[in-house]
Design a protein around this nucleic acid. Structure first.
Lengths: 344, 344
DNA sequence: ATGAAAGCGCTAACAT
DNA sequence: ATGTTAGCGCTTTCAT
């Protein structure tokens, strides 16, 4: 029962075309008639039917967003940034969870295309050749978060994952630790997961520390994974001074596992995460981590994608944002009270 | 450049109507022609234009979802459940953040109506008279999460917040504590926040403990609020044995604040939360809390709303799901090791 | 400056 | 069983 442009026209005593003109001020309209039309619109509480518009414009004003799992803290902060920008520019976002399944991702990609979304933001845990093929041949603009994209015409927003991991590892190495482990994430193809791992390896190399594969393990981004991986790792009694975990959520699980094995953090083992999710400050011990400007990444990727959707020139296709090492309690093997540490 | 029903018809040598029939099998079609049509659809990779369909059906296949903030853990788990069901039934969801602002909520409500969503799921921190008016007079089906609704024709899914708070408070009272505080959430109107507060008050009454207003404070659902409220509370040196916090996120902040003031949890003060977000297990100390079946609430509210959207009878408009008290480390004032506690 | 009419892609009577 | 046609609500030529 929402009213139509026809009803507005009737009430204002003009044609539909004129109503359309004041709606979009696409053409000059006599001030007096414009007022009449405006009033009719008010009275009927008219709002244009988006489906009808989409049909004409061949634009849906919808941005599709594929993420691994909206309940993941990194993801939800990112999505909030995206939503904010999209909303302010009159776009809706359509969120889909892939749960890291490549086949689901492919399915969702098709689904979004069938919904005629104007553009797609893709946060994948693994950028596979299948994805690249689709992206390359896609008619709608694409944007990737934290996944490098070599010449496939997609926007990408990320931090320098290699450098960030290198920096975090160096932080431990500078302290003189030699037994620095890493929990990284599974990867088959080049993407942020691999870059972080390589950053770790490179740091070891540059500090002349021999790589010890008993000190590394693969987890799958969630707290549960961190927990289980470390429980397994501690089965074999290896000595460990510090652990760099490729994402905060996993780090939370890691710390719990260490503690349950009688190792306290940071006294026995120092632990650092990656992401700087909001919870990192409140966790006990507060987590040292690589800060990613998550909110900004979300806003930026949405902004750039919408620019592209609207045909504007996107000057920089690959945007690399700065990261920062944030030191908190989990790497403060000290006598000071937590209160002291609080004052960063 | 997606293909249209006309192109399919042309290729298959039939009329658009016939193509439409095989698409929706709305009417019998000769098996042979159906095959030809199907093949043409395949070859052209045809998918029906949703805007065109919406225009005819007057249905958008979109569910609007207004939440306080997607980056809140309770919210993101809820939304994931909603998305799951919606997606499986062919609906898209359109998520909006109100950031708890009533005016923004009202604005979003209008926005969603202008987008012609088929139904609205509303998670508000405060169900105001303005909202009720809109809901009551709304043409599209409504569903509320954790907000009672007296006869306004909306579905509601929640737990028994009063009873849950009563149970949690009793848990402390049964231990013999008399100084049991509560951090509740601001409310102006009847909704889950008030129910939780009343549950606390009733428990005190039933146990003949006098209410002490120095032991309660109001926070605003986030960790930061919990943190600041407790810092303020501890300014005045009052004795406190246990603290019931109206949501987990706030509880995380509360625990940190206590610790920074030299009070350890649970040794000096026991703390319980509300929600049972995934992080509650990993936090240190693991948080005792009121378990809400968040995922199930999300799925259920989506299921029921979609039933209603599709005109089916919704037998039960107000669904109350069971809650559960989950005891973890934050209320275990004991000598046992955390490992022991782990085995619930 | 305004109106009439065609058309966006689809479905649903109404014919045949 | 299939085709023809009108119409969903809007925008946009093309006239006037």
């Amino acid at each position: 029962m929402p009213s139509t442009i026809g009803q507005v026209a009737l009430r204002a005593g003009v044609s539909k075309a004129t109503v359309s003109r004041v709606l979009n001020d696409s053409k000059p309209v006599n001030e007096e008639t414009r007022l009449r039309v405006m009033q009719a619109i008010e009275e009927l509480e008219f709002t244009p039917n988006p489906a009808a518009r989409s049909l004409v414009y061949k634009k849906s004003k919808i941005i599709g967003v594929i993420v691994t799992d909206i309940s993941n803290l990194f993801v939800s902060v990112l999505v909030r940034g995206i939503e904010e920008i999209a909303y302010s520019k009159g776009y809706s976002i359509l969120i889909c969870n892939s749960y890291k399944s490549t086949s689901k991702e492919l399915e969702l990609l098709n689904m979004l295309k069938s919904k005629r979304v104007d553009g797609i933001i893709f946060l994948t845990s693994n950028l596979r050749p299948e994805h690249k093929k689709i992206i390359k041949s896609s008619s709608e603009p694409f944007a990737l978060v934290n996944a490098g994209c070599d010449k496939l015409g997609a926007i990408s927003v990320s931090i320098d994952n290699f450098k960030a991991a290198y920096d975090m590892t160096s932080y431990f190495l500078d302290k003189g630790y030699t037994k620095v482990g890493m929990i990284y994430t599974y990867f088959e193809d080049k993407y942020s997961g691999e870059e972080r791992y390589q950053g770790y390896r490179q740091a070891l190399k540059d500090y002349n520390i021999e790589f010890d594969e008993r000190l590394v393990a693969v987890g799958d981004l969630e707290a549960d994974d961190g927990y289980m991986v470390v429980r397994a790792m501690l089965g074999s009694k290896i000595r460990l001074q510090a652990l760099f975990v490729a994402c905060d959520l996993m780090a939370f699980g890691v710390i719990r596992a260490l503690r349950e094995c009688g190792l306290s953090v940071p006294e026995d083992v120092e632990v650092a995460g990656f992401d700087d999710v909001p919870m990192a400050t409140y966790f006990q011990p507060a987590l040292t981590t690589v800060h990613q400007p998550i909110d900004r990444m979300g806003r930026l990727v949405a902004e750039e994608l919408i620019k592209m959707v609207e045909g504007a020139d996107v000057e920089k296709m690959e945007i690399v944002l700065p990261h920062k090492i944030i030191c908190r309690e989990s790497t403060a093997k000290l006598k000071e009270s937590p209160d002291e540490l609080q004052k960063k």
